[in-house]
């Protein structure tokens, strides 16, 4: 130890010096009143800071936070319900579409007893009926409705993503 530096004094305060280093420091302090004064002041800072206490948060704070959490849960619940509603409507539309297409098909007309034949006839008639169905106004209407529902669902997906990003940044 050539010189008493601030770092050495801080290490002494934090008990990071070895026994021999402490001895050496004490010897040097005996002939260095400025450094001794600094050490006393540093020790005073350290002991005073150890007596510091926490500031008291306002009494109402826990209640305010819990009510914010509760309202957040309600909003989240509502958005989930809406999402499920969209998904439900979309699923029903799909089922309805398939139901309509299948109603146009009459696989029993084939007269074949084999399951494989039944399936083959079923899909060949499905293909014809589907092609026929595509030209109808009803299919166009269903397609347009599905597109609108998809667009709405996409909008809410983007909106919820944006909300999530905002919650991260604030």
């Amino acid at each position: 130890m050539k010189k008493i530096t601030d770092e050495i004094l801080n290490k002494y305060i934090d008990s990071e010096l070895s026994a021999s280093e402490i001895e050496e420091l004490k010897n040097m302090l005996a002939s260095n009143p400025d450094a001794l004064e600094k050490l006393k002041a540093l020790r005073f800072v350290d002991s005073s800071l150890r007596t510091m206490e926490h500031d008291k948060a306002p009494d109402h704070i826990a209640g305010s936070i819990m009510s914010r959490i509760e309202s957040l849960s309600i909003v989240k619940g509502k958005s989930f319900y809406f999402f499920y509603w969209i998904v439900g409507v979309f699923s029903l539309m799909i089922l309805g579409l398939f139901g309509y297409i299948f109603s146009l098909i009459s696989p029993a007309d084939s007269g074949s007893s084999s399951i494989l034949d039944n399936i083959t006839n079923y899909f060949s008639s499905f293909s014809i009926s589907f092609n026929l169905g595509l030209s109808s106004n009803l299919i166009l209407l269903i397609g347009a409705s599905l597109s609108i529902i998809l667009l709405i669902a996409f909008y809410f997906l983007v909106a919820s993503h944006r909300e999530f990003k905002n919650s991260l940044s604030h």
Binding site: E37, K40, A41, R43, V45, D46
Partner: peptide, 23 residues
Amino acid sequence: LLHRSRNLLRDLLLKHNYQEEMI
């Protein structure tokens, strides 16, 4: 950062001659 913060407080105490209270 901890050392600098303590050193700052120490220097301010010495600046205002609080030595008597530090004994």
